[in-house]
């Protein structure tokens, strides 16, 4: 089985190590991993901000890059949603591209979803035994794609204790350009979400943007924050890294 890894621009630049972990994880499961070098960004920031012509140009580029991939796997729920749900929307009135978009959508999976649904693997190892993990559900993966149980199952089956986080399914306030267009609202949402975070060893998610936003807020010492978790800071670690840790044990 061949997988083309779409690392996504944010993970490429900010969570490069987690990309390495995704590669090792997939290989450990017997998957052949390739990395099409011309890949860039899925275009979601432009799409969400209403710049659909620009989004379309990036979507066309991506359709082209992954044309021959057997499967496209992304360590990001939101970018997966872009390829799977929003590319067809963008090309709805352009029949040839629409077919191409539908075709790509059918071969595209978020990492944890791919492992559970396509590979049929639910236990990766027990390298997370005794670790308390708080899982942030990215909104798009959760509500647009219905990815909810897959990451939780992989974490729990590796021995992680999933902490009860009342706001785990609530938007963290990242929202792409939303975070800089309405920064006060965005930060206020992060504070509300963080304030309900229970004690945990790791805060994880399949969304690089959400993690940058949440960890950026948690590390921020410029403003007098009363909203960080009363239990102090959890280590923020992308899902791909934690899943590799499930196989490998603690690094």
């Amino acid at each position: 089985m061949r997988v083309a890894l779409f690392i996504t621009c944010l993970a490429d630049q900010f969570f490069a190590e987690s990309g390495v972990h995704a590669v090792k994880l997939l290989r450990s499961l017997g998957v052949e991993v390739e990395f099409p070098a011309r890949q860039t960004c899925c275009g979601q920031p432009a799409y969400n901000a209403g710049y659909w012509n620009e989004a379309r140009s990036m979507a066309e580029h991506t359709l082209d890059v992954f044309q021959d991939a057997e499967y496209v796997v992304l360590p990001s729920g939101s970018c997966t949603t872009m390829l799977r749900a929003f590319y067809p929307e963008l090309f709805r009135e352009r029949s040839s591209k629409f077919k191409q978009a539908e075709d790509l959508a059918g071969r595209t999976f978020e990492l944890a979803e791919f492992i559970v649904k396509v590979l049929g693997v639910t236990k990766l190892g027990d390298g997370l035994r005794g670790r308390k993990v708080a899982y942030h559900h990215g909104c798009h993966a959760l509500r647009e794609l219905g990815i909810k149980q897959e990451p939780l199952a992989l974490l729990a089956n590796a021995g992680a204790e999933l902490v009860d986080w009342p706001a785990s399914q609530e938007c963290c306030g990242f929202g792409g350009l939303f975070s800089v267009k309405l920064p006060e609202v965005s930060l206020s949402m992060a504070d509300q979400k963080i304030s309900t975070l229970p004690r945990a060893d790791y805060l994880t998610s399949a969304l690089a943007g959400c993690l940058l936003h949440l960890s950026g807020r948690m590390q921020n010492h410029r403003v007098g924050l009363e909203t960080t978790s009363p239990y102090g800071l959890s280590e923020v670690r992308p899902l791909a890294s934690l899943l590799w840790q499930a196989v490998e044990g603690a690094a």
Partner: peptide
Amino acid sequence: GRAGLKPSPKSFRELW
């Protein structure tokens, strides 16, 4: 309101 952005020392593509 957020800590500064720090890119990974090398991008994933460079690591690959």
